[in-house]
Nucleic acid binder design. Sequence first.
DNA 1: TTCATTTGTTAATCTACATGAATGCATGAG
DNA 2: CTCATGCATTCATGTAGATTAACAAATGAA
Lengths: 168, 168
Amino acid sequence: MENINETLSLDSEEKILHFNKGEFLQRTGVLSTSVFLVKKGLLRSYTIDEKGKEHIFMFGSEGWIVGDNIEPGEKGELFIDALEDSVVIPISKSAPPKSDFQKLHKRIGVLQKRIIMLMSAPAIERYNHFLEIYPDIVRRVPQRMIASYLGITPQALSTLRGEIAKGK
Amino acid sequence: MENINETLSLDSEEKILHFNKGEFLQRTGVLSTSVFLVKKGLLRSYTIDEKGKEHIFMFGSEGWIVGDNIEPGEKGELFIDALEDSVVIPISKSAPPKSDFQKLHKRIGVLQKRIIMLMSAPAIERYNHFLEIYPDIVRRVPQRMIASYLGITPQALSTLRGEIAKGK
DNA sequence: TTCATTTGTTAATCTACATGAATGCATGAG
DNA sequence: CTCATGCATTCATGTAGATTAACAAATGAA
């Protein structure tokens, strides 16, 4: 569940892309053919539901892969944007480099844990787990985004943090 | 989100394992080195939380991969057992066959959708989505397992189904 | 600097779903 | 077959977290 920090084995040609804070790497409804390895900075992927509410799917800082794993040929269902100025390497989904089953397995492991916690753990435990897993990200993004990632409202997170502070 | 029905490209030696209904392929706390491609039958993977409650992580029928994607070298956190007599092919996580990024991406896609729905959709929508995705599985497992997969209690699912029936 | 926007906090109320318990049915082992 | 166990349903009650709203502090653009 920690960073993926081995270097990725890459094909011959290796594109590097720069995105400024606030720029979009992908929008919902657009064909999605690659995922992004973050070399520097911070990305986030998220959906917007029919009520207009944002749900953050993943954060991705240095070493992580951020992407929208929909069926090949389908339109993406996630927005991906840069929360900090970022440098990324796009990785094709259809013709990937030799690499890196381990990374994919790791990624699946993170999602696995997330699902289990969404189903079985109350918000406060999910928050504490988040703090363990992403100690740095907590300091890099506003709380409302962490709430969104946890699947709760900013108000609920605020209250919950108040209780932690008191209980300590 | 539908079955993964292309044939998997495999290494030279290809083990085939048989499990009877009720048998375990993996238990929590045991070293987990491979995932399982289901050729026939039906598997399920699940955790048991500290209150003793079961949470189904995935069902896997023909063509699906079922596994416990924890860090290499870590102990598994899922139980995997056979809900029907099953035939599976173990696939190593550390030295995988040449195959099949597409399959992994597909698998990630399913998890992605699941997380998004757990965060954003009420139980009834998750249930309807489940019916679309796994029309067959609904008939193959008891309802309490579907409830578990959806992250709700059997009672809640029952009530919810009653409402759907009335509303129709 | 000034003003507008975003952020975090607190509090009152509402609701989806959990919990616990009782009941009737189906199933499978002996 | 018979009985025990598991399963689905319904109901009464409890609760985590949503919603709405009001306000203060921080941030950022002109």
